[in-house]
């Protein structure tokens, strides 16, 4: 489902003496449908960078990143947008939304953009928010005013609203209590069971051990940081 071949990434900081930073070199791996792979390595190893490259958020200088047959490195913006809408989900650590949109709409939006009816989308959003223990009185409010943990759960609900065939999870269990952590882990297990290919970053080792089938140590791709 997700295939990386000889992927490399450098940052060129034009306004800081044109410093060139090599971040990742020659990354190759694949994730099959129904598989969950954890990216590991200490801070600064490039886990998040790699994740963002796979989402098309960071520009990849060389190599191929194929998701469901589409090469993200060469794809036109509109193909990437279509891929993100239909195929590739991303749960980041931060919630980025228009301030006054209600929580329910934030969660339902990914379903609306793939053409689900407002009713169905809302029903699914309600189910997820309930599962993730977001009190019903908050649903009509904008999540921008919520606590960090609540925002994180809204973000997860939004990420799992549509059944993406491929998913990227950046620290999905961070800052969650035991109950909600359990909900998130079961959501991941459900996604796997329906055949989603998942790449995740988990600092939570127990969670990683439970849901991940393999680990990939990003340090092996990091120039000057041999494991």
């Amino acid at each position: 489902m997700i295939d990386l071949k000889n992927v490399s990434k450098t940052f060129t900081l034009h306004n800081q003496g044109s410093a060139v930073i090599e971040v990742l070199n020659n990354v190759s791996f694949s994730v099959a449908a129904g598989e969950c792979v954890a990216l590991t390595g200490n801070s600064g190893a490039g886990k998040s960078t790699l994740m963002r490259m796979i989402y098309g958020n960071y520009l990849t200088q060389a190599g191929e990143i194929r998701i469901g047959g589409v090469d993200l490195v060469q794809a036109e913006p509109r193909d990437v947008i279509a891929l993100r809408r239909e195929v590739l989900g991303y749960v980041s650590q931060f919630l980025r939304v228009v301030p006054r949109v209600s929580t329910l709409d934030v969660v339902a939006e990914p379903l609306r953009v793939v053409g689900e009816s407002a009713q169905d989308a809302q029903a699914r959003a309600e189910t997820l928010l309930e599962q993730l223990n977001i009190p019903q009185r908050l649903w009509s409010l904008s999540p921008t005013t919520f606590s960090g943990g609540e925002q994180q759960r809204v973000n997860i609900a939004r990420g799992f609203a549509h059944t993406y065939p491929a998913m990227l999870l950046d620290e999905p269990t961070a800052s969650l209590d035991a109950t909600n952590r359990e909900v998130v882990l079961s959501l991941i297990e459900e996604a796997k069971a329906r055949g989603a290919a998942i790449i995740g970053i988990f600092h939570d080792e127990a969670a990683r051990a439970r849901v991940c089938d393999r680990e990939i140590d990003v340090r092996t791709f990091t120039p000057g940081m041999v494991a």
Partner: peptide, 8 residues
């Protein structure tokens, strides 16, 4: 892509 140009 908007987020790519802004973030990278």
């Amino acid at each position: 892509l908007t987020d790519q140009v802004l973030d990278d």
